[in-house]
Design a protein around this nucleic acid. Structure first.
Lengths: 247, 247
DNA sequence: TCAAAAGTGTTATAGGTACACCCATGT
DNA sequence: ACATGGGTGTACCTATAACACTTTTGA
């Protein structure tokens, strides 16, 4: 091994990775970028950060970070999510890897895009060392984004529909006990189409992983709705059996 | 920028990349691995190489290579395909990125998996600097593979079905003029299920990108078959219009 | 008793599946 | 004439879409 590589190795084995000059990661680095979609009340948004450093200082961008030499790719994505939202135990899925030579002005950086879906209410995104501020943006009002992040956002939005179905991502934006109307609203927002109430409910009845509870809504000025819950284990078993969940 | 990084930079800017000691790429490198599926005569195979160097010397593995600092990710995958098969103008698609810390014994290597489908006949895979030999393997008889390549192969096989439909990959394994029976055989092999002849043909008629030619088979001891051709432009247009190709 | 949203039922149609049958060619 | 694979037609059944209707609550 050459001396130059020994130098790098000693650098990256230091505990405090933040103290490494940014230049030292570059010329051959990989990063993760997270497209964190947020749902609340029939509104789909995306979490963006305002960059506090060059390049693209003051631009909005997807939250992301370089991958530390000692962490798995998936872990790095989870870490970014946790740093911003304090959320753990949220599944975050790989979308695609972006590796054009000149996508990053400071050097060669290949980035792996991840996406997930969370509930936006009462979620307080924190600014971090690399972010001046953070905010939920409506998908209809996306500002100019740094790097190739607009392209990444588009790809993730396309992937979201598939994940909502195949990974039951929708369960991450509903309370433990929810009504069928709430569930229908989630699907309508994410898939961006109106669904017929009757037909929707007919389908739901076939899905054993959606279980009717004995409980119902209270204090509403209309007929109270039955509450349902989602059984992740039953869902996984159904998927393994080759079951195909559609809407 | 530190001296150590300047050293690396000067190394990687040399034209003859093969002359760089393998160690110098490591501790933070990215590679591409290609899952090249081959079809001929109702048989689906995959192209494997026998490694000529450590680690995993003499093991079978997916063909792949480190990504040069000056090439795009997609280009690197095309290059690996071309080196082995001489094929160009074949679309090769990203599957997923594998980034576990210890997936490569010599250091941190993140690999981006690509997949494609080609015709196996008369295709002479070349051995290269890093491969002792190459061979098509039946998917039912996969030897022990190096690294996490078995997992990569599985993921790619799952992805193949989707790509066959959405990207018309099947057109890459048929001659320019083909019969509907040939087409049906391709689908049956790739999707791994029997299709009804009548129903298959009924669907084909709806697809304008499959055009009936004036020509038919010759010198067969049964009724000669109509020949068809595939129009990639019409297919692309149909996809853009939101058309959903299914089988 | 009324408004509002929950929840159920009915019907028409499109699309898929299964299967039977006819057709054109070389030997 | 017959074997072989190409090619077509039909009848059934199920999934879906559209829409109307009934039910239960609070005010």
């Amino acid at each position: 091994m050459t001396d130059s590589l020994k130098n790098i190795e000693s650098l990256i084995q230091q505990k405090d990775l933040y103290s490494i000059p940014i230049d030292d990661f570059f010329k051959s680095a990989f990063s993760v970028d997270c497209v964190i979609f947020g749902y609340h009340d029939c509104q789909l948004k995306v979490l963006l950060i305002e960059r506090g450093t060059e390049p693209f200082e003051n631009y909005w961008a997807l939250p992301g970070d370089l991958v530390y030499p000692t962490e798995d790719l998936d872990f790095a994505a989870s870490r970014v999510l946790k740093d911003l939202t304090s959320l753990t135990d949220i599944s975050i899925r790989q979308v695609k890897t972006f590796g054009k030579v000149n996508r990053h002005p400071l050097g060669r950086v290949i980035t792996v895009a991840y996406t997930t879906l969370v509930e936006t209410t009462e979620l307080n995104p924190y600014a971090s060392s690399w972010a001046k501020s953070t905010a939920w943006h409506s998908l209809k009002e996306i500002p100019q984004l740094a790097f190739d992040h607009l392209e990444i956002l588009h790809e993730a939005r396309n992937e979201l529909n598939a994940l909502v179905i195949s990974e039951a991502l929708w369960s991450q934006v509903l309370p433990a006990k929810f009504t069928l109307t709430q569930l229908q609203e989630v699907f309508e927002t994410l898939l961006d189409k109106k669904l017929d109430k009757g037909n929707f409910r007919k389908k739901i009845q076939e899905y054993t992983f959606l279980q009717k509870l004995e409980e119902s809504q209270k204090n509403v000025n209309h007929r109270p709705s039955q509450l349902y819950c989602f059984d992740q284990d039953l869902f996984n078993k159904a998927i393994i059996k080759g079951f195909n969940f559609e809407m």
